[in-house]
């Protein structure tokens, strides 16, 4: 039985008070009772499929789904769930005993597939009956639906983002620098640049992509490394303005992160700060991150000693 590959997979989602509350909240926005009922059932179906996706670790974007947007609910009969890296998956509700699932014209284009969801309002359950890739006839016959197995195969596997490169600072002490890191003189204006001790290895990197507030005004992250006694290494991270700017955007943050990503130390620029910095000592084998951020936007660099 367990190796029976032709078994038709379904999945029953127990509906919670929160699922029902969401459906009620949306449906109450609509005065027309037919529309209100449609929105109620559509929301439950989307919530059910979204739960199934959560179980399987499939990323979705519910707020960007038209089914979760009051204006789109009003204009279209839509029960879409946006699956990241794939597209809009239509989650059509049917009631118990239905044999077919008609598809409104609103959902016949621009969908990556259809899941039919049987809503049982008494038992508060939603059963994912099966999947169809297309619906050329404008109606899905429930007995002809494909197994959820086919849905799983259709969803593109997420492409793993390459791990960010880790900059080895010990190599810097030997004069070997990583690509993307330039001499400090090339990026930081002499007015701002302090004199460094010669045994300090230092490099600078332009930090862009900090959002619209500093668009056109990238900042520079400099890292200085030097050997301390007993094999320890001193590290100084500093952030400078570039170009005509002589001060940093207020609220710009410089954060040192532990190797697990927790905040070790955070420094915030006030208005009129020419630079912000943080200096600390590290041991060989240590890993840490340095993050430069403004609001939600930020760039993190990873280092090892």
């Amino acid at each position: 039985m367990m190796t029976n590959l032709t078994e038709h997979l379904t999945f029953t989602v127990p509906l919670t008070a929160e699922n029902c509350r969401q459906a009620e909240t949306f449906s109450r926005l609509h005065k027309n009772p037919v529309k209100a009922r449609q929105v109620y059932l559509n929301t439950l179906a989307v919530q059910a499929v979204n739960f199934y996706c959560r179980c399987l670790g499939i990323d979705t974007d519910l707020p960007a789904s038209h089914s979760a947007q009051p204006a789109m609910q009003a204009f279209l009969d839509t029960a879409d769930l946006l699956v990241k890296g794939w597209g809009r998956l239509e989650c059509r509700p049917v009631l118990r005993g239905a044999k077919g699932c008609p598809l409104p014209e609103d959902v016949r284009e621009d969908r990556v597939g259809y899941v039919v969801v049987e809503i049982d309002e008494v038992a508060k359950e939603a059963k994912l009956l099966g999947f169809a890739k297309t619906a050329p006839a404008g109606v899905l016959i429930l007995s002809e639906l494909r197994s959820l197995e086919d849905l799983i195969d259709e969803i593109p596997e997420p492409i793993d983002e390459p791990a960010p490169p880790v900059v080895n600072l010990l190599q810097w002490l030997e004069g070997v620098f990583d690509a993307g890191w330039q001499a400090v003189e090339e990026l930081v204006s002499p007015k701002l640049r302090p004199a460094f001790k010669s045994q300090v290895a230092k490099r600078a990197k332009l930090i862009r992509d900090l959002g619209i507030d500093v668009q056109g005004h990238p900042v520079v992250l400099t890292i200085n490394v030097w050997e301390e006694e007993a094999g320890a290494v001193g590290v100084k991270a500093r952030v400078y303005p570039t170009g005509e700017d002589t001060t940093l955007p207020p609220n710009l943050k410089l954060t040192v992160l532990t190797d697990t990503g927790e905040v070790f130390k955070e420094v915030t620029a006030r208005s009129d700060d020419e630079f912000i910095q943080y200096e600390f000592e590290a041991e060989r084998g240590d890993k840490f991150g340095v993050r430069v951020s403004l609001g939600d936007a930020g760039v993190t660099e990873q280092f090892s000693i």
Partner: peptide, 14 residues
């Protein structure tokens, strides 16, 4: 995260 595991989990819960 493999598809085979997703299918097996669906089967198990079902």
């Amino acid at each position: 995260k493999s598809n085979a595991r997703k299918k097996a989990l669906t089967k198990l819960i079902m």
